[in-house]
């Protein structure tokens, strides 16, 4: 895999052949309406003011870069899933949408790192994913759900570390998006989408 991520083409399958029952399908459609653009997140979190100086530190840049590295890997992981041929509509559309979110996160994180005088990490030329263990749509969904759950925990563990509160707010905004991904993927797997009252 290269660090260039081409758009994928969704296979044209009948709507009935999607492996999802109706309530989940409706749930998936609804989730898409909650998407915020990167610009909206930046405005929400005040990243522009954070970048202007104030209290952001080299440690904050390091946190942002670690998050960026994970986002770039998530983009690549969704690419693997989308190109696997195992995902059917509307799950494939969902994967593409979630990959788009991760691209927005990565773009915002990279821009913020630059604004703070840092150098954003690059995507790796190759990523080592357990592709030999992905045999079905559910395998791909389970793999993605694990990454999203990990992302929730990673952002939760990063939020309290930021010296700049605007950056902490931005990270919390991304955390919320990752949590929605995790819940929707669990739902698509037929699992309780929100199994706990608190994430950890």
């Amino acid at each position: 895999m290269t660090d260039t991520q081409p758009d994928f083409q969704a296979p044209d399958l009948p709507a009935e052949d999607n492996g999802l029952i109706l309530p989940r399908r409706s749930f998936l459609r609804g989730a898409g309406t909650l998407t915020l653009s990167a610009a909206a997140v930046a405005m929400l979190a005040g990243c522009e003011s954070a970048a202007a100086g104030s209290s952001a530190s080299a440690a904050d840049v390091s946190i942002l870069n670690t998050a960026l590295g994970a986002e770039l890997e998530a983009i690549a992981a969704y690419q693997v899933g989308a190109e696997s041929g195992l995902l059917r509509k509307p799950v494939l559309d969902l994967a593409v949408q979630f990959q788009g979110h991760h691209k927005e996160h990565a773009d915002l994180l990279a821009k913020t790192v630059r604004s703070l005088g840092g150098r954003p990490v690059d995507a790796k030329k190759t990523y080592d994913f357990p592709v030999d263990q992905l045999k079905s749509q559910n395998d791909v969904l389970g793999f993605a759900a694990g990454l999203e759950k990990g992302a929730v925990s990673a952002y939760l563990g990063a939020v309290p570390l930021f010296q700049n509160r605007d950056l902490a707010k931005a990270a919390a905004s991304i955390l919320g998006d990752e949590a929605m991904h995790w819940a929707v993927l669990r739902n698509a797997l037929g699992q309780n989408p929100v199994p706990v009252a608190f994430v950890s």
Partner: peptide, 9 residues
Amino acid sequence: YDRCLACHA
């Protein structure tokens, strides 16, 4: 360990 899976394997 699930919490580590965003960055580790």
